[in-house]
Simulated scan of single mutants.
Amino acid sequence: MKNTINQHKPFFLFLVKFILFYLVFTLIYKFYLNQFNAEKNEVDGITEFVANKTKNTLVFFGKDCVIKKHELEASYKVLYYDKYLARIIEGCNAISVIILFASFVFAFSAKFKNTFLFILFGSALVFQLNIFRIALLTVGLYKYPEYKEFLHNIVFPVMIYGVVFALWIVWVIKFSTYAKRDK
């Protein structure tokens, strides 16, 4: 058993670092979310920020968009040209995706500065792309309502997870300690 652990030490180190980072930041995020009462339709500040930035993005591109707090649930309604097309809930704010992204990068960590900066840059990129993703989804739902499920469940998740995957590849190949070993 000890020989197996020593033989696969990099894998086990990766796994422990990934799980610890993921659990710690997921618990911090859950603690943050517990401050808001979903039964009273309270929306967390990050989701509210994403909703407002989505509206600002659409308005910037000359589109008519209004964000309204939902009366019956903890979410924001997206009204695009006076048509209620979508709602932005906590799961739309990309924080869970960012925690997953950062956990992987941390698990393959290099120097602290490089790891921290890559997580910071990558998280900001994923967060901003998520806002564009929601804005594009809104436009897509308006123009192609018959493809609602396809757009929401396939096209746009692939977009955000594709970027995360590409960032992971860049991290492992260019910056991680494993990239340094091959040189």
Rank of each mutant, 00 (worst) to 15 (best):
F165Y: 13
T138W: 00
T4R: 09
Q7P: 00
A110E: 13
H70C: 11
C92G: 01
L13I: 15
T47S: 15
T138Y: 01
G122Y: 01
V66C: 02
V50S: 03
I173G: 02
L167K: 04
E39L: 14
F104N: 02
I46H: 04
K40F: 11
L79I: 13
L151D: 01
V66Q: 11
L136E: 04
L100S: 08
I28P: 02
N56K: 09
L20Y: 00
W171K: 02
R181I: 14
I131V: 15
V66A: 09
C92D: 11
F11I: 12
K30L: 14
F36S: 03
V50N: 02
L167P: 07
G162F: 08
N6M: 11
K68W: 04
F127G: 01
I154C: 01
L13T: 14
K9A: 10
F150I: 11
V170N: 00
Y178P: 01
D64M: 02
S176V: 11
K113A: 13
K180V: 13
H8S: 08
D64A: 05
F121I: 12
E90I: 06
Y32W: 05
L13K: 12
I88A: 06
Q7H: 11
N114L: 10
N56I: 01
L20F: 13
F108T: 14
A51M: 09
F21I: 07
L120G: 02
C65F: 01
E90R: 06
D82V: 03
F12K: 03
K143Q: 14
V78W: 03
V97A: 15
Y76K: 06
S123P: 05
S103E: 05
A166E: 03
C65L: 09
L13R: 11
T57C: 13
M1V: 10
A107T: 08
L125R: 02
A102H: 05
A107R: 11
V126D: 00
F49S: 10
K2T: 08
L13F: 04
F104V: 15
D82S: 15
A86S: 12
G62P: 07
P157W: 00
N114K: 15
V126A: 00
K40Q: 15
A179V: 08
L15E: 09
F101A: 00
F116S: 03
P10K: 04
K83D: 07
T177I: 10
K180N: 07
L100V: 10
A107G: 07
I89W: 02
F132T: 02
K63Y: 11
